Simulated assay, not measured.
Amino acid sequence: MPARSAAQQKAAGAALAAKRGHIKKSELKGASREMEKTMSEKELDEMASTKRKGKPEHVDSGS
């Protein structure tokens, strides 16, 4: 599942780093903390590897 915004892609990257042990899980905040808990490493990798070019910084949660 590709990221819909740059912010989502960044949060997935942080969650993936924590899941792989590169950063402490306690350093995560907000969306990245939830992503780390609920998504698999494969899902996070797919979302984090999404290109940011042309993506908005944020997307409304209602869309």
Rank of each mutant, 00 (worst) to 15 (best):
M1W: 12
M1L: 13
M1I: 11
P2M: 03
A3Q: 03
R4L: 07
R4H: 04
R4P: 00
S5E: 00
S5D: 01
S5C: 03
S5P: 00
S5Y: 05
A7N: 00
A7D: 01
A7K: 04
Q8T: 06
Q8G: 01
Q9P: 01
K10C: 10
A11S: 00
A11G: 04
A11D: 00
A12F: 05
G13C: 10
A14G: 10
L16V: 02
A17R: 06
A18F: 06
A18E: 05
K19H: 02
R20L: 11
R20N: 12
R20A: 12
I23W: 05
I23A: 08
K24G: 11
K24V: 12
K25C: 14
K25A: 15
S26A: 11
S26N: 08
L28S: 08
K29N: 07
K29H: 06
K29I: 06
A31I: 09
A31C: 10
S32Y: 07
R33A: 11
R33N: 09
R33K: 10
E34N: 13
M35C: 07
M35E: 07
E36D: 06
K37L: 10
T38G: 15
T38I: 14
M39E: 00
S40Q: 00
E41F: 13
E41A: 14
K42Q: 15
K42A: 15
E43H: 04
L44R: 03
L44H: 01
L44V: 04
D45I: 08
D45C: 06
D45M: 10
D45N: 09
D45T: 08
E46F: 09
E46V: 10
E46D: 12
E46I: 12
E46R: 09
M47N: 03
M47W: 02
M47C: 02
A48C: 08
S49H: 04
S49I: 02
T50E: 00
T50C: 04
K51R: 11
K53T: 12
K53N: 11
K53V: 12
K55N: 04
K55F: 07
K55W: 04
E57T: 13
H58M: 14
H58D: 13
H58I: 11
H58C: 11
V59I: 04
D60R: 03
D60T: 07
D60E: 09
D60V: 05
S61T: 15
S61Q: 15
S61N: 15
S61W: 14
G62C: 12
G62F: 13
G62M: 14
S63V: 15
S63Y: 13
